[in-house]
């Protein structure tokens, strides 16, 4: 009898605990979750520390930022499936648009914060071996016979799409929109590719650790990271024309409204545009969107490079580009199977 009593009490306790713990603490949100992509680990590690201090000074409140990193599309998927991010800071606008389509982010998010909601940008550069023995200066040099090129596969890697499009943009200008010449150039370029890895980190390892190839097409920040890992072995060549990658940020409305974290989330993303936030981006080899702060890093970034965006009439935005170039039987498939 006594035993069954105890059992009942234990059972009701078990049922009550989750129920009482379930009421969301509306009073003060002190925790913010930022779901981000792979190469921003170091950036947000520093930024979060700075933001926590700034917020404490401003409001007297201690907060913590919970960080998650992974492949950009994979992370977007997790948010769609219920990984409760207050903010997302991803590699491509299309990944945030996917979350929008799932009903968690309101349309027009890209106008919420300045500069297309991209507090920092990046571009594609050449990482070459010390002294640039093959004398690679511009995109045209990469298609010459005997040059070993390392890039990930545009079918599987977001970064590789930028590589491909940057080369395309150059060729389009070089050959005066003569599509046949452009295709010929792109075919030759990919004919020079020695190893087509599935992801950007894989390609970096192929070039840096395994010593394959003469040039790695890489994110500017990833290239600087490789140099920091192995100083004195490589140098960076910034071609005169490249592409502007805008990794965007957004508040996940569905989560922020449920948790009552909108104010904190807004403050968090806004502070990325502050002088301090911009400098942290620059120190981590992302180009600050504020031109004044970018100027402070003019020794690191070649600010004179002409950058074409994905919204340029040449490409006409991500949706169109994705369909024309990278889907099955798209342009990339054609040139790569022809080879």
């Amino acid at each position: 009898m006594k035993f069954s009593h105890l059992g009942l009490i234990a059972l009701s306790a078990l049922l009550l605990v989750p129920a009482s713990g379930a009421l969301p603490a509306r009073a003060a949100v002190t925790e913010l979750t930022n779901v981000s992509y792979d190469p921003t680990r170091e950036l947000y590690d520093q930024y979060n520390k700075a933001f926590v201090q700034y917020y404490k000074k401003k409001t007297g409140q201690d907060i913590t930022v919970v960080q998650s990193h992974g492949g950009s599309s994979k992370q977007a998927r997790a948010v769609i499936e219920g990984n409760e991010a207050d903010v997302v800071t991803l590699a491509l606008a299309s990944d945030i648009t996917a979350i929008e389509h799932a009903g968690l982010i309101k349309a027009g998010w890209q106008k919420t914060f300045p500069n297309n909601s991209s507090p920092y940008t990046s571009t594609i550069v050449f990482l070459v071996r010390k002294g640039n023995p093959k004398g690679l200066k511009d995109w045209g040099d990469l298609a010459k016979p005997g040059i070993g090129v390392i890039t990930p596969n545009p079918k599987t890697s977001g970064g590789a799409r930028w590589n491909y499009l940057a080369a395309w943009a150059w060729a389009d200008k070089q050959y005066n929109k003569d599509e046949k010449a452009v295709l010929d150039y792109i075919s030759k370029l990919f004919g020079n590719v020695l190893v087509l890895d599935t992801g950007a980190r894989g390609s970096t390892n192929t070039f840096v650790k395994n010593g394959q190839g003469d040039v790695l097409l890489a994110w500017e920040n990833e290239a600087y990271l490789a140099i920091a890992e192995r100083p004195g072995e490589f140098e960076i060549v910034t071609p005169p024309l490249s592409i502007l990658a805008e990794p965007p940020v957004a508040i996940v409305d569905g989560v922020a409204d449920k948790r009552g974290s909108r104010a904190l989330a807004t403050e968090y993303l806004n502070y990325l545009y502050s002088d301090e936030g911009q400098r942290i981006a620059g120190k981590n080899f992302y180009r600050p969107s504020n031109p004044k702060i970018a100027e402070e890093f003019s020794k690191i970034f070649d600010l004179k490079v002409k950058l074409i965006t994905i919204d340029d009439p040449l490409f006409g935005g991500w949706d169109k580009t994705q369909k024309a170039h990278f889907e099955d039987r798209g342009i990339f498939d054609k040139i790569y199977t022809k080879k």
């Binding site: 379930a22 769609i80 499936e81 219920g82 990984n83 409760e84």
Partner: peptide, 21 residues
């Protein structure tokens, strides 16, 4: 089964129960 797109999710969510993630 338990994610946001599952039919079970709204039920779990109304009790504030979070299973996956």
């Amino acid at each position: 089964t338990f994610g946001r797109l599952s039919p079970l999710h709204s039920f779990l969510d109304s009790y504030g129960l979070k299973i996956v993630f």
